[in-house]
Amino acid sequence: MSTLSLAARDSSTMIRRQLKRLVRYPSMTIQLIVTPVILLLLFVYVFGGTLGDGIGGGRHAYVNYVVPGILLMAAATAATGTAVMVATDMTEGIIARFRTMRISRASVLTGHVVGSIVQQLLGAAVLVGIALAIGFRPNASVVEWLAATGLFALFALAITWLAVALGLKSPNPESASNAPMPLIILPFLGSGFVPTDSMPTVLRWFAEYQPFTPIMETLRGLLLGSEIGDSGPIAVAWCAGIAALSYLWAKRIFNRA
């Protein structure tokens, strides 16, 4: 077998390991799915009336506005879970065992990443389902839905590899749970919850150029038909860049340890 097919085989073994682990330990997945749903309800029913008036259209308009931001926040929350799982895994003897075996080195990490993306897509499906039930009214075509799903998956890939690297870098699971915290805040400091033109100058400048904003704008455009402009390519470039750099970083830390 060639190196590449061995790597593919080991990765699929590790993905199966990770999926089994997620099924065995469902409380983490449930928490990662429930937290964003609560945030969605909070933003729509508690803040939604007032914020909706601000953007024009009241609570009803705000449901549509806030979904992309909550989606990214859900992915970022799941990434925190991944960082903790990776850091915990590294403290277990099983990783030392993997290192003494003739297997593809990155396959352990690939298992974590794919497991986490499955978790995040599941969470996103539940979130969108509940959003639809409380008045989310996208007007996307099938192609636009697929494109939105694809972009979300790409974002999940990027943020998960970043979380894996942060998890590897952390000396213990406790600090691993803190490292990705800024990622959860970023949708707030962008166009996730309110339009950026309502912010003071310095913050607005940051909000417009940080990576989450073009991703949220693209998702919003695909699902609701708002103006995408050049956000699409910028969003894809950010995701691809973060994914590639984080992958290399994570691999390097794992090989060195």
Partner: peptide, 25 residues
Amino acid sequence: GVTGQYSAVDKLLTGEENLLLMADL
């Protein structure tokens, strides 16, 4: 083959699954 001082089993998996994981790897 290495059996270290600290348990190198995947505690979330069953005994059988652990062995099958090794067989796959």
